[in-house]
Nucleic acid binder design. Structure first.
Length: 260
DNA sequence: TAACGACTTTAAGGCTGAAT
DNA sequence: ATTCAGCCTTAAAGTCGTTA
């Protein structure tokens, strides 16, 4: 979808983008190959052309940085399809305390669409290990991560490359009419959890960690299973929410018109 | 070049979910 | 029940292009 988007250009909002599609200008290439566009002056079109050439070049290189910098967070979902190969679902568990009161990350779960990797405090969780994993990816997928997971990790591990484009499913889902927390949305979408972890919440994750610290071996296993389910389900939800957001733009109906 | 209309941008306030 | 950050909504202000 990103190469069909104009909404990140200064002075172009939802209406104007839709208007471009309506005129048959469905992609950056279309924009660059016509000489004039109604309602756009010469100067204005030239400025946009320069911008689109730049983004087009960076997209070919799969450089995610300019997109993270110049596209508003609420539009980052448009990068999902192009960057899916490099996407990483992330979910953390903590000991429940605020950072400045001794709060710490206990588990970090990462899922790239094929494999889950989990990092556990006191075992394999370290800034270096996270850095190594994150630096291989170009799009973050979280649920409410922009308010919780990402700021938390950033403050605890200063060097992590977390300034990636970020598809936050909490706000995206809300925009397509799905409200509530992750567990509620999973249920609404018919995604089912294993019996032993169904009904667990983020607070339970805190308690499980405490139990493990006091010597209960199975608590850690349960916590890891819980974290795994949270992390993996993000990808399913991302796929569904992406399609719904795409539908909402109206883009597809203009594409169909131009084909027929 | 002044006024108008359509749209975008900005700023403030409200809302939500995740955490204790 | 309370706290927090960030997104969304709303309304006001600003911009661009058109028209006379």
């Amino acid at each position: 979808m990103i190469e069909h988007s104009f909404i990140f250009l200064d002075g172009i909002g939802e209406k104007t983008e839709r208007d471009l599609w309506k005129q048959g200008i469905l992609s950056w290439n279309d924009f660059l190959s016509v000489s004039t566009i109604s309602n756009f002056g010469y100067q204005r079109k030239r400025i946009y052309e320069e911008s689109l050439q730049y983004f087009s070049h960076e997209l070919q290189r799969m450089n995610e940085k300019p997109f993270a910098e110049f596209i508003k967070p609420k539009d980052h979902w448009r990068l999902f399809k192009r960057f899916r190969k490099y996407a990483i679902c992330l979910d953390i568990e903590t000991n429940g305390l605020p950072l400045d009161a001794g709060g710490e990350t206990t588990v970090v779960g990462l899922y790239d669409g094929n494999n889950v990797k989990q990092f556990v405090k006191g075992r394999n969780l370290s800034e270096d290990a996270l850095f190594e994993e994150l630096s291989q990816h170009k799009l973050l997928i979280t649920f409410f991560g922009s308010s919780f997971d990402i700021p938390f990790l950033k403050r605890q591990f200063r060097s992590l490359p977390l300034d990636l484009p970020h598809f936050d499913l909490c706000f995206s889902a809300r925009r397509v009419g799905m409200t509530g927390g992750l567990k509620k949305i999973e249920t609404d979408l018919g995604l089912v959890r294993e019996k032993n972890i169904s009904g667990l919440s983020g607070y339970d994750a805190v308690l499980l960690w405490k139990e493990w610290c006091h010597g209960n071996q199975t608590s850690l296993n349960t916590l890891l299973e819980y974290n795994r389910a949270d992390t993996v389900n993000l990808m399913d939800i991302a796929n569904i929410v992406y399609e719904m957001l795409l539908e909402n733009t109206g883009f597809q109906q203009y594409r169909e018109n131009s084909l027929s």
